[in-house]
Write a protein that binds this DNA or RNA. Sequence first.
DNA 1: ACATTTTACGTAAACGTTTACGTAAAAGAT
DNA 2: ATCTTTTACGTAAACGTTTACGTAAAATGT
Lengths: 337, 337
Amino acid sequence: MSITIKDVAKKANVSIATVSRILNNKPGYSKKTEEIVLKVIEELGYHPNSIARGLINKRTHTIGVLLPKISSMLMNEIIRGIEDTTHQYGSSVIVCHTESNGQKTMQYLQLLHEKQVDGIIFTSETLKEEYYQFVKKMNIPMVLLSTESYTFPVPFVKVNDKHAAYSATEYLIKNGHKTIGMISGKKEDLVAGQPRIDGFLQAMKAYELPVSDNHVVCEDGFSFEDGVSGFHNLQKQLPDMTAIFAASDEIALGIISTAYQMNIRVPEQLSVIGYDNLTIAEMSIPPLTTVGQPLYEMGEKATEMVFEMFEKKQTVESRIFPHEIVERKSVKNVTKA
Amino acid sequence: MSITIKDVAKKANVSIATVSRILNNKPGYSKKTEEIVLKVIEELGYHPNSIARGLINKRTHTIGVLLPKISSMLMNEIIRGIEDTTHQYGSSVIVCHTESNGQKTMQYLQLLHEKQVDGIIFTSETLKEEYYQFVKKMNIPMVLLSTESYTFPVPFVKVNDKHAAYSATEYLIKNGHKTIGMISGKKEDLVAGQPRIDGFLQAMKAYELPVSDNHVVCEDGFSFEDGVSGFHNLQKQLPDMTAIFAASDEIALGIISTAYQMNIRVPEQLSVIGYDNLTIAEMSIPPLTTVGQPLYEMGEKATEMVFEMFEKKQTVESRIFPHEIVERKSVKNVTKA
DNA sequence: ACATTTTACGTAAACGTTTACGTAAAAGAT
DNA sequence: ATCTTTTACGTAAACGTTTACGTAAAATGT
């Protein structure tokens, strides 16, 4: 048996109500009894049972995070931001990786419902109608992170992917590159797919550089392996390119690694710019120039939004975060000065 | 108001006891009423409140994981193993990163106590007396992961670090290296510190190779930056070495990256073997030869142990996992054949 | 000194479940 | 047909809190 509020009350010769009041410092007790009770609590090593609290308060101090793949390095920083912030709010988080599987997602949603989480952060994936309706019924706040919905009124935090892709491409162009390829991940990806391709295309057009279907290859995902195979494909289609925009850092690393094996030197013969600015970007050889998103801060913000919505019982404004080009060593300036 | 078991009972014209019985399929209801109740549940979209359940069952289906730094890539695989397995058991996990801070650790322990977790996995850190006593009072199972305690009877799962370090060094030796340095992380680290140094030393002695204080440098941690500075230091102490054993993959990457900048070619001029076999090990240039631990499986096992202890209410045997040398391209065979 | 307000409590209901116990009806045994 | 067992429920207590309500004592006001 563990020690309950009753034990404290008995030993301190007060009612449980008084103990509870002291614990939550609601008015209704004297300095003297507070001292006594506090001492007893100390002596007994009492800790309130937050399950019982949750039952009556209808607040569990727990939020749920749904994300496609925890293994993806991208998620790390984001999760760190979420967890740190959540803990600062005196809450904890339940992480659920859905593997982009609809059924699994629904299962997790159910789990989160049963566990009565106070809110949900839905990350990096398309918010399907089914998900939305379920969460709506749960009647708890949800915010979208690194994704957005055109159909449902759910606040989001993300960067402008199209704009960021434009910037990356522009950076390549300003460094004198003219024949530029792009290796995209899954085209259907709502946020990392088409928008980044669009940004790339738009930049090429804006600078009046030639661009065709041959300039872009789409892979199944955003992993190292996708980078490897993407590079092989792009090589065939666009053999004389001097630079590549990769839709993720992992893809970029796949490119660099493959190029290394093919004796193509980066950046001397081939420039590569990535997207994400993962920790590994600075560990790569050469260190990877890439598009940075403030992932930690985004996780932080999303968490704050969830708590704000929970407390104020109303929606909150979406937030677009700025991106930046993190210059390192994988892009060469080829302008003939 | 959300839908409770009462609503279901009322609409189905039965008592809440019956509904509960059906939900938990305990005996005591007919096929007919089951059908009716199930239908009503479906119609109302009822989901049991696991907080209320937890209160009465004294089981929350939640476990806590304590680890020093979530950012460390090492933890990723481990956490994946833990989370996947936990979810398979119909439970969820609360991750707490303590940053090796005693005060923070105690705070989290308190949080986990208040949230009434069913068990705790304590990872990669020294189990201090204070922690042990606290968890002992909580009276829930705990298992140590990637660490162990000589003082307290807590089951653990880890690899034999000394042995693994011996193997790594031996691998270098068998590839013909004679002047071999080691870059260690924090020496005080109970599992990744001295044991790996000991393994290194023992292998050197076993093969009668010279070894002195100059052969080993210890850094503050196991990060990329530690590898960078460690390499600089070791270079001074042992300029003619042909191979390095790094106490972590991140350190190894730091070495390789620095070597690259100093125009020292890996593995042609310098061989490097790492420790951990992180995802990034295969992305590096050249791909990193390293000591692999079955991290995912270890997380899996630790989780299973926690649940087993919870159910059987008794301790369980510790488990040493095998390590392996993952051969890639960062070590050159220098035997003159 | 007395009326009034405030303070400092205690009592009990409530949160949404599970489960021990009781009981009437159905089923089975003789 | 009667007795016994089994089945299919319902009632109510319990889990550990919070909190609305009530009340006696203390503090304040006149």
